[in-house]
Design a protein around this nucleic acid. Structure first.
Lengths: 350, 350
DNA sequence: CTGTTAGCGCTTTCAC
DNA sequence: GTGAAAGCGCTAACAG
């Protein structure tokens, strides 16, 4: 059976389709009498009516959906942000379409979607963006892209979190434990966010009178974290390493394990962003939590503001970074052998 | 500046909009002369024309996009499947919209999208489905839902991998290493897939003359794996555990670590599905690989077949499960103390 | 090879 | 409180 239309409902309820539309959309202007209203609602239910979204979108010239462009679906931090976006968007009556940039390759699917009117706007993680793709976009459309976690050249807005401060806090924590020989592992300096982490790292090192040892990876995967950690070990024999993203951490743990280095007895590890992974790693990972979820919420809200015609500048999420102390960092001890046979004292998870 | 329409392009190229449409869509029926064709193409480029997707969808009564319903974005196995779906769909000219079921809660967003004509069909991971949501769907629409990794009551089609055999292979591997005291950790028996894993586990245990020890979790998270492993240890003191999903594994490692049990020296661990996580865990995790990526590809293809009017039955992906040997399983040894101080011999990753 | 026409299903302005 | 009419931008059948 064909999908019911407004006309079908109108026919059954013996009213004009336009009235059905108004009633079903709770149009405040022209309200129907209680009786006809009921007739219409009944008819709609009976015919199992649902609006044809393409027709509505065409008419309204808007889709009430936004696109969320992520670099990697499995990344736990992305997931946190995505949840925030999904939640706030839903509250504001918007649907969200998620795309994984690595999948869509050179296809520019999202840019296409925006220019075709598939979505009203795009929320883009800066590290998942290839700025060249935006070139062909008109100014009107460019305005409808909101970068998350960094600025994008040519765009006047962004929603960011304080990466630099988080990196500083990581260093400070390590220094507080007596570490002087630490190496930071950072993503390629292609975007704003990894750059800011390096800036914070350097700043804190300098402030503490430590030489900043920095390793730049070639990518964003666990494997990159693994390789960098291996290099950090052989190059510097550090007492602490700072893989600056959740993705790198699993690789770092693996490299340390492979080299028979215990965490935190031999090497302390700390990272940025708190997630379920950091909680369930062995040992659980100390980190500086950034308000990822809130960034998602705020970004969704701001983008919808933009769609509604408002101007948004560069905003930073207000909630400050917070140290989440777990078991991957420890005091530097001269005589490590005393620790080797120590029994693990680990508070069970609640 | 307003988005250019076919009329605008037609006006500039001095032809009828309908001809523009035909040319831009490479309509095989009516082709234009080389000269007008060029005029049209030039005009389109000059005006930066892109089709209005809502108008096209309305006209064609189809959207060339499918919905992918996942339980959890961060789950590495889901990610494998998603990649397969994305890839094959793209090849066949379809876009994919991803939704995370836990986010959309009781909202039935996807069911809504299907009935509103937002998507032409849905690929649904069975464990992310609440069958009650489908009730209000007409038969015509129900046909356009293809369950992945299990059957759904009322639906005549599915794309599956051989979970039961994979579970059997896990047991067989363990038995081959001398294990007799193993416990399997399985998801709630609400859907086809976890049920089949239990079936395979039991079957292999029985075949090998072992009593099947089974723990059923209440959920699908790392935390559930953690709690179940803790229980497995205190209840059975097993020499091997089989957390039956990637998600459980991190929790299992954590529980073992917390109890000071070494992998694989004290307890062997094996799971189903191969992913980057299994590779980078410490120690790297032995598993039975299932063709998750292929399942995604096949599912996408089959769903598109369905959309095109074909009938699909219940199909299983042909590629057989395969044991991926890493370092989390070992021979059961009577005197464990000989192993304790052994140096780790671990081949570095290539 | 190209133009005319009609209509997909919806919303909204304007009448009554 | 309700109906009539127009049109969003596109495609496809038909005409010439």
């Amino acid at each position: 059976m064909r999908k019911a239309t407004l006309r079908d409902v109108g026919k059954l309820a013996k009213v004009d389709p336009s009235l059905v539309s108004r009633v079903l959309n709770n149009d405040p202007n022209a309200s129907a009498s209680a009786r006809t209203k009921k007739r219409i609602l009944d008819a709609a239910k009976k015919l199992n009516y649902t609006t044809n979204i393409s027709a509505r979108n065409l008419k309204l010239a808007s889709t009430k959906t936004i696109g969320l462009l992520l670099s990697d679906l499995t990344n736990p931090t992305n997931d946190l942000v995505a949840h925030g976006v999904l939640q706030r968007s839903a509250e504001l009556g918007y649907d969200v379409i998620i795309a994984n940039h690595s999948d869509i390759g050179g296809d520019k699917t999202f840019v296409k979607m925006l220019s075709q009117g598939h979505v009203d706007g795009i929320l883009a993680f800066v590290n998942s963006v290839n700025e060249a793709e935006f070139e062909e976009l008109s100014d009107r459309l460019l305005e409808r892209i909101l970068p998350m976690n960094g600025k994008l050249t040519g765009l006047q807005c962004s929603v960011t979190v304080d990466d630099a401060l988080a990196a500083e806090m990581c260093v400070d924590h390590l220094v507080g434990l007596g570490h002087k020989n630490m190496v930071g592992i950072f993503a390629p300096q292609l975007h704003d966010s990894p750059k800011r982490r390096v800036v914070g790292f350097k700043k804190a090192c300098t402030r503490n009178g430590i030489e900043p040892k920095i390793l730049l990876t070639h990518g964003y995967s666990q494997r990159d974290g693994y390789l960098a950690t291996l290099e950090a070990i052989s190059e510097y024999s550090p007492t602490a390493i700072f893989p600056s993203s959740n993705a790198y951490v699993l690789g770092a743990y693996r490299a340390l394990y492979e080299r028979n280095l215990r965490i935190p007895d031999d090497v302390s590890v700390i990272t940025i962003h708190n997630s379920e992974v950091t909680e369930y790693l062995s040992p659980p990972l100390t980190n500086v939590m950034l308000p990822a979820n809130e960034m998602g919420k705020m970004a969704a809200e701001k983008l919808i503001n933009i769609i509604d015609g408002q101007k948004i500048g560069h905003v930073t999420v207000g909630i400050p970074p917070r140290l989440v102390l777990r078991s991957s960092t420890a005091q530097v001890i001269g005589d490590k052998s005393t620790l080797s046979s120590e029994v693990r004292v680990l508070k069970p998870l609640s």
